[in-house]
Amino acid sequence: MRVAINLLTDDPANPSGAHWFWTRVIPEMASRLTGDEQLHLLVSPTSRASHTGYGPGVHHVTFPWSNERPPLRTASEHLYSPLRLPLSGIDVFNTLLAPIVRPAPGLVVHFKTLHAYTAPESVRPSARLYRRLSYPRTARVADAIVINSESLRHEVTRYLDVDPAKLHLIPEAVDHELFRPGDPEHARHTLRLRYGITRPFVLFVSSLWPYKNCAGLLRAFAAAKPELGDRQLVIVGPGRDGPHAAELGELAAELGISDDVVWVGGVPITETVLFYRAADVFVYPSFNETFGLPILEAMATGCPVVTSNISAMPETAGGAALLADPSDPEAIGQAILEACGPARDGLREKGLLRASEFSWARTAERTLDLYRAVYARRGGRR
C-alpha cells in the first residue's frame, strides 16, 4: 500500500496548525508501517526541508509550489497530481479537497474546518468561493472523510450532502513531551525578560480573526478588572498587525484597559508552553471551532481553562473547563474570576486528566487504519 499525503496547502514561511498536525502524525504512522506499506509526501522545494528524517518507509513527491503561491499550488494539485501520482504507484491519496481528476484509486480527505460556511469573514473571497465550489464534489467522490469532532460532523451534514458512513471521527491530540507541567516561576521570569510581562495574567492564544472573539474577552476582562486586581491580559497569536487587531486596540482604549493588555503577536508553538505555564487562566471564548486544540495544550500544562459553551469546545474540554456564553462578556468575566479563585486547583487536576486521553500515537494509528481500510475496499494494488 502506497499512500500519498498532500502537504502543499501549508506555507513554509508561515506554518499553520496543519503543519504541526502532520509533523506529529507522520512519524507515528511511519513507525507503524508494515510489509510494503509506504508514505509519499507531496512537498515543494521550499517545504521539503520541514519533512525529513521520518524513516525509510517515507518518501517525497516534489511539486513546484506549496502555499506560498496559492493559485499555482492549487493548479498543480488539479493538473499535475493525476499525472504524477500514478508514476509512484499511489493507491490512496490524502488531501483537503479532491482534484478534478482522481489521481489514485482511493481518496481520503481531511475536513479541518468549514469556515467558508461558518466563518466566511476569515477566508479570502477567492478562497471562499473555491472552497464552496469544491466541498460538495469532494464529499461526493471521497471514499472517506476524516473529521475531528462531533461538532464538525454536525456542520458537514448541515452544509453538505454527504453519506454519513463516509465520516470518520479521529480527534487531534497533544504533544505531551512539549505540553506538560513545568516551573511556573521560571516561565514567568523568561516571559518578563522576553516580552515585558511583569504581572500575573489572563491568557488568550489564537489568531486574531473576529470569530475567535478576542473582542468579547477584552470586554469580559474590563468587566472583571476590579476583582482581578493587578492582572494583565496577554494576547498571543498571529495577526497583530492586521485590521482586526487595530480594531481590538481601539476597543481596549475605549474600555480603559490599554495599559493592562500585552499584545505579544505570533510566537513559535514551542514557546507557547511558557505562556500556559505562567498564566493564571487560559481563556478561549471562540464562536466556532472544529476542535479547539489550545484547550488541551493549556490543560496538559496544568493551566485552568475557561472556554465557550457552544461549537466543539465543550466536547473537547470534556467537563474539565469552565464554560461560558461567548456572546456574554459578563459570563466570561465571572468564569475567569472563578477559575482564578476557588475552582483553580480542581480545574488543574481535571485538565491534566482530560489532556492525557489524547495522544498523537492514537491519532496516527487510527488514520493509518483508515488508509488500510480504503485500500482494501478499493481492491488492493491496481
Rank of each mutant, 00 (worst) to 15 (best):
N213Q: 12
A361K: 02
L133I: 15
V3S: 07
L160V: 09
L228E: 06
N148I: 15
L83T: 11
T290W: 05
D328I: 03
R194Y: 00
P64C: 03
A320H: 01
E289I: 04
G302K: 12
W22Q: 06
V234D: 01
L368D: 07
E365Y: 01
G265M: 11
T52S: 13
S66A: 12
L296Q: 06
L233F: 13
P64R: 07
N309V: 06
A142N: 11
R153Q: 13
P184N: 09
S286F: 01
F358T: 06
F21T: 14
A116F: 08
S151E: 08
A220F: 00
L114Q: 05
S149G: 08
G346S: 14
R354W: 05
G229A: 11
Y130H: 13
Y195G: 02
Y211E: 12
V109Y: 07
A376I: 00
T157N: 00
R124W: 02
A4M: 06
V306C: 08
I5P: 02
T190C: 00
H60S: 12
E330D: 15
R153K: 15
W209M: 04
P304K: 12
R344K: 14
D163F: 10
D175R: 11
T23E: 11
S206W: 03
V141F: 04
G53N: 08
A373K: 15
L85K: 12
G53H: 10
G216R: 04
E254L: 12
S359N: 07
G346N: 14
Q232V: 05
A222Q: 05
V108K: 10
S206D: 01
A119L: 04
R199F: 00
I145Q: 02
P82D: 13
T307W: 10
N67F: 15
V202C: 06
L178W: 02
E172V: 08
Y375N: 02
H186S: 13
L347K: 02
A224K: 10
S308Q: 08
P99S: 10
E185M: 08
L191T: 09
P120G: 05
E68P: 00
A245R: 10
P70A: 01
A49W: 07
E68Y: 12
D241F: 13
P226A: 09
Y54M: 04
V305C: 06
S47G: 14
G242I: 05
A312P: 09
V236E: 01
P171D: 04
L85Q: 10
A142F: 11
R128N: 05
L160K: 06
V281A: 08
I295S: 03
P326Y: 03
E68S: 11
L322Y: 08
H60M: 06
L352I: 03
L152E: 03
P342W: 00
F93W: 14
L347G: 07
G229Q: 09
Y135P: 10
P15T: 13
M1H: 04
R24K: 15
L178D: 00
W22A: 07
H244E: 14
V267F: 08
R73I: 06
G89W: 09
V43C: 06
